[in-house]
Every structure is written in structure tokens, then in C-alpha cells.
Computed example of a mutant assay.
Amino acid sequence: MVGENSLETRGETFFLNLRFMLIITVFAGNAIEPLINKMSGIHGLYMWIFSFHMPLFVLVTGYFARKSLAGTTGRKMLLQIGLQYLIFQSLYSALDISLFHVSNIQHSIFAPYLLLWFLASHACWRLLMLGMSRWSITAKLLFAVTAGVAVGYLQLDGVWFSISRTFVYLPFFIIGYHFSFETFVKLYQKYIKIFAAAASILLLAVMAAWGAGFPFGWLYGSMTYMQLDANVWYAGVYRLGLYGLQIVASLAFLGLVPYGASRMTDWGRRTLYVFLLHGFIVRLAAVSGIYTYIGNAAGAVVLLLTAVLFTVLLAQPSVKRLFHPLVEPSVDWMITLQRAALRRTL
């Protein structure tokens, strides 16, 4: 029993470390996006980040969801995700219209604002997992991969309701939910872990050298085949190939993640704050005109270091204390209203 608890603690520590490392890549990826067509090295770094960071973030979310999927806790989580979505969808849209004056964005409650797709999809993944609760792992994965390929054939904009990313990344949520840390630790012994880490660095070098012509739309997961100009019957094969790339890139990146607890582990407990708040900083930087002054490697390095610094700052306990009502709003009042309504109907 002690060994099981120790293994569970080690697994939580590992995934908190991974979660913080991933939120750094999220912030960094969004920060360097305006530079990807100006610098080949940045283009390669951006492609490397997108080859694993969303699949792994979904996997981590699935891993932590297994403690709060069903029952009262699961219902509260769904309500909170919905409330978070409404709050930040309204805030980002209002600021885009009034302050940032950003065009070419669908300001609709049914079209998640940029990074907020993750909240909409997270709620859907939880509901889908509840619906598949009696299925075997194999059946869940077969359905998820089939749906991830099939959703691309829809003749619509995949952004609406986050329908494309919900099904494209569903396999990774299922893998995370059923993830066996014990098996992972047995596999990722010292030399395997070193090999995986080296493979991740090698993949970065390869993408920097030869990834210039790769269409990013495939890595985003938000577009249907119609939007990707892949109007052929076998377009789904491309997505299967992309799944292969994402799995390889993800397994390689896991070699870089430490097992031991550190300050980074604590920061990993507050990545939600970084995720929901960093978009304001990125948007402010974009409209400030600062990118016109970044034209060389030194400027790009400073930008990346600044993104890491802001990630650490937003993961501090003081930020949580200040923004807790906004980022993790209480839903007790909603549950009280539900119960009252139920009593009236009975």
C-alpha cells in the first residue's frame, strides 16, 4: 500500500513537472508566432513545439481528470469549466473589440476565442468519457482515432464549438486518463530517458533545417480537410500520419521531464492561471509594435526568456490569490439553484 501511494505521488510530481514545462511552450509558442515567417530557426522551434505540446497537454488533462470525472466532483468541474469559458470568452472578446482592435476573429459564444478552445473541448472530453465509461480502453481508442480522422471530412469551419480539436485530440485525453505511470517508469529507465531526450533535440534540429514547407494548419488540429486544401478522399491518411508524428514527438519530449519534486512542481499546480491570463500579455505585446524591433536571433532569445519569466510570474501563489475568483470561480451557487429547481419540480 505504501509503495502504491509512493508511486501515485511520484506520478503526480512527474505530471506537474510536465504540465509546467508544457505551459512554458504554450506561452513561448504564442509569443514567437509573429516571427515564424521572418526567421527560419523560429519557424523550426514553433513547429517542434506544436508537434507535441497540445497532444501532451491534453494527455496531462486526462491524467488528472480521472480523480474528478464522475459524481458531484465531476459535475462541479463541468460547471466551473463552463463558467470559466463564459467569463474569459467575454473578457477576451470585449478587449479585442474595445482596446486591441483585432480583426478576423469570430466573436461568438459558439466559436471559442483562440486559446479558449481548450476549455470547450475539455468539457466535451469529460462528457464523452462519461458516455464511454463501460467501454474497454481499446474500444475507446478505436472510436477516438476514427472520430479524429472522420471529423476532418466535415464541410464546415472546425472552429465552431471546437468540434475539430475536440475529436482530433480525444485519443490523447483517453491515453492520459488510462495512463499507467508504473509501466512508464519501467520503460523510461536512465538510458531510455536520455535517448528520448536526445531524440527530442534531434527532432528540433530536423524541423529547423527541413520543416519550412510543412503546413501548420495540420498541427493546429482546428481545421477540416476542406480548410487545409486537402479535398481528396484519402485525406484522413494524412491525419493518421500526423498522429504518428505527434506520438513520436511526445514520447521524445517526455525524456526531458524530471521525475523529482522541485519548485517547478509547485508552479505546475497553477498552470491554469498562466494559461488563461497569458493571452492578455501576448495580445498586448502584439498590438504594442514590439515585434517590429525584433529582427535577429538575439531579440528572439530575449523574447523567449521573457515568455519563460512571465510564465513563472503568473504561476506564483500571489497571482492565484488575486485572480482566484476569476480563474476558478465558485459554482456552489449554481448547484444550490439546481437543487432548488429540482425540489420545485418534484
Rank of each mutant, 00 (worst) to 15 (best):
A123E: 02
Y177M: 03
L116C: 06
V60F: 05
W333D: 12
V308G: 01
S288D: 11
F280Y: 13
L256Y: 07
P55A: 09
V206E: 11
Y220R: 05
S250Y: 08
T13W: 10
L346A: 02
L202F: 12
F161A: 10
A286F: 11
Y177R: 02
R19V: 00
V308F: 14
M77D: 08
G176C: 08
A199M: 15
H107K: 07
G152R: 03
T345H: 13
P325R: 12
V302Q: 06
S93N: 12
L342P: 00
Q106A: 14
S330T: 12
K193R: 14
Q189R: 14
Y188I: 00
L59I: 04
N231Q: 13
I42Q: 03
S133D: 10
A230T: 14
Q316E: 13
Y153A: 05
V206L: 15
L304E: 13
S133E: 13
A235F: 07
V149H: 12
G152Q: 06
F184M: 04
A196W: 06
Q316N: 10
I335R: 01
S108N: 13
F88L: 03
R344K: 15
T166L: 03
E4T: 08
G221E: 07
R283K: 15
I36T: 15
T146M: 14
A252L: 11
V248E: 03
R239H: 13
S6N: 06
Y291E: 09
F20A: 00
T72Y: 08
P112N: 10
A235Q: 10
F100T: 08
V327W: 09
F253N: 08
H53L: 06
L128Q: 07
L69T: 10
I174G: 02
N296Q: 09
L128E: 09
A139N: 03
W218M: 05
L245S: 02
I42A: 09
L95A: 15
A123R: 03
L346D: 12
V60R: 00
A297G: 05
G211E: 04
V257F: 09
S90R: 01
G74E: 08
R339N: 15
P34R: 07
W117Y: 12
L56D: 02
I194K: 12
F143T: 05
L116M: 11
F310L: 12
P112E: 13
W267I: 01
R270W: 12
